[in-house]
Nucleic acid binder design. Structure first.
Lengths: 350, 350
DNA sequence: TTGTAAGCGTTATCAG
DNA sequence: CTGATAACGCTTACAA
């Protein structure tokens, strides 16, 4: 009743029904079946109905791999992110994946762990898949990656950053602005000795941009920037270490009255350390982070932080790609530059 | 210097160098290049060297799509998870993806949002990709999904659950045991009126297994199971609602002295509500969750919970697949059934 | 150890 | 609107 291969069993192949099986059963040419699948409008209603019946009867699933080979373009999009499971990129991946899935594209994922070399590797691998487009994180890549991206001839999107002068599509926000936003928030609240705590993860260059934005605002206000780089590798420990260094117990030393951390993990480490030390936040020292991780509003005191548009980045990147591929009508002109906003979440810790 | 197509430019194709270009430059048959790439041992050192040079010269990247078509098996593995970005599945995806990437496989991801129909859809789509293996979450699927999986003829892994009688490879833990573990923990600490709060997300059937395990242990100890199903859709609100219902303010009513929540989000909602109400946890009521989300040890009091082996599931699923495909030597016999442990994290809230 | 021939299942091209 | 034919770039089967 449901024998996929109407003819003799072949030596190779998947054993599944092919477009030819459908064509034979519907008594049309295979190419007509292909057309029916891609552009139903270009096939007469009668043949269309016969084909539809045959497809159902054979339980036919088009082989996307063969289609990808023939058209030199697989319906897939490669995406390189620093990591999949962190609180930062996961919503971006989710939104990106869901949006593209909805249009029949598969997302291929690879993580770079903030290493440009691993990113290069991933891009090289992706090219073997003849993807329809590529997405990378940030604007910092190896020269080889740049070359591969440029030579690929397919749409490329850079996410989670914003570099107007680059040639690829940009979907992100300005980390410099974020740093400035944080600094302004603290200055407005009257804090004077405002420190910035760097990420101990080497390779997270976006945190350096945030620091630069912070430093610029402080200088504007006649305050002296003050950066601390923790040694501890684990973010919670690093946050604790930074607090101890910037708000020492003894008298007479220079003390920070507010600290901006490169991310919420560092800030949470400091917040917990403060609790343990009986230090009052924000009275003795205000703390703020970046990222608005899921736990940040649950802390006591709740953590002031800046929320990046993680989900919007994924969704918009997918949309711009679909537009570039002609799969979607450009809604707002489909600009190459897409600058999104980060929202300051003012809470108890400042 | 780097003209990919030594001969005439072709009308179709990606424009990239092919295996034939490499073969021509190295003056060998294309099949020898193919062999060199797959089984370097079967090619003489001299030809190998010539081929290696040609590959470098042409910057050749094998077209995996063509290879996948020819061999009727793409080096890809489809994975369906309820969601990508939650605290639960993200570590599994990360570990699974990284392990398979390391062996040259691409992971194709799709999210079901706990819907069996969406899962079926994803599986159907994946089959069009001729994947080498498939991974699904849990043991509950539509009949059509079951049929597709069985007919696929490729290794199938069910994760995040453990159903010994099913025919697919199992990599997970027993949710019933987890529920029992939670109940035992509370019984041992002397709690008597122990309630269980269900998930408000319909479709998360694993939570029901946990409740069953909890109920069995309570009965063993002569205690009466007591399940509450919140109405609020958002987990935090649902947790708060459950607390209000199970530990009412008035006198004379029946009150829970301990509550097991279906997950940490619910428990966190209750914990925060307790703080706001000035209720002392665990003195007035002990609370525990499931999942050990990243924030759980940061709460005040820190949340007792059970940590599922999320990362181990991803890694082991990948390993079993690679073994089934002959890409990896079976280390411990590569059993079909893989039961992992969940670790109870006893903390302040109980 | 190496090579030849024949697909894999689809789509681009061009002709009716 | 429909179809025959020839790719797409690689691997399997078989032969030397």
């Amino acid at each position: 009743m449901t024998d996929p291969t109407t003819t003799t069993r072949k030596r190779r192949g998947s054993g599944r029904a092919t477009i030819h099986d459908v064509a034979r059963l519907a008594d049309v040419g295979s190419i007509t079946v292909s057309r029916y699948l891609k552009q139903p409008g270009r096939v007469s209603a009668e043949l269309g109905a016969r084909i539809a019946r045959a497809i159902k009867e054979l339980n036919y699933v088009p082989n996307l791999v063969a289609g990808g080979l023939a058209s030199a373009r697989l319906r897939s999009v490669g995406m390189v992110v620093p990591n999949i499971s962190g609180p930062i990129f996961a919503p971006t991946i989710q939104a990106f994946n869901d949006t593209l899935n909805r249009h029949g594209f598969q997302v291929l994922l690879a993580s770079s762990y903030f290493s440009k070399e691993q990113e290069e590797n991933a891009v090289r691998t992706f090219l073997g898949w003849s993807p329809a487009a590529l997405v990378v994180t940030g604007r910092f890549h190896t020269r080889a990656t740049e070359a591969l991206l440029s030579a690929s001839g397919i749409p490329v999107v850079e996410t989670w950053d914003y570099a107007p002068r680059r040639k690829h599509i940009q979907v992100g926000y300005s980390n410099t602005d974020v740093g400035a936003q944080a600094a302004r928030h603290l200055v407005e609240r009257g804090y004077k000795r405002i420190a910035f705590v760097q990420n101990s993860v080497a390779g997270d260059l976006s945190a350096i941009d945030r620091r630069d934005g912070y430093a610029a605002v402080l200088r504007e206000h006649g305050l002296e920037p003050w950066t601390y780089v923790p040694q501890a590798p684990a973010p919670f420990d690093a946050g604790q270490e930074a607090l101890a260094a910037l708000v020492p117990a003894g008298r007479g030393k220079r003390k920070a009255d507010a600290i901006v951390f490169a991310n919420d993990n560092l800030a949470a480490g400091a917040l917990l350390a403060a609790q343990r030390l009986g230090m009052s936040v924000p009275r003795q020292c205000a703390l703020m982070g970046f990222g608005d991780y899921p736990f940040s509003h649950l802390l006591l005191p709740s953590l002031t932080t800046i929320r990046p548009p993680a989900q919007a980045i994924g969704e918009l990147a997918a949309r711009r790609i679909l537009e570039a591929l002609g799969e979607l009508e450009p809604e707002d002109g489909s600009p190459r530059l897409n600058l999104l906003d980060c929202e300051l979440q003012a809470r108890e810790s400042t």
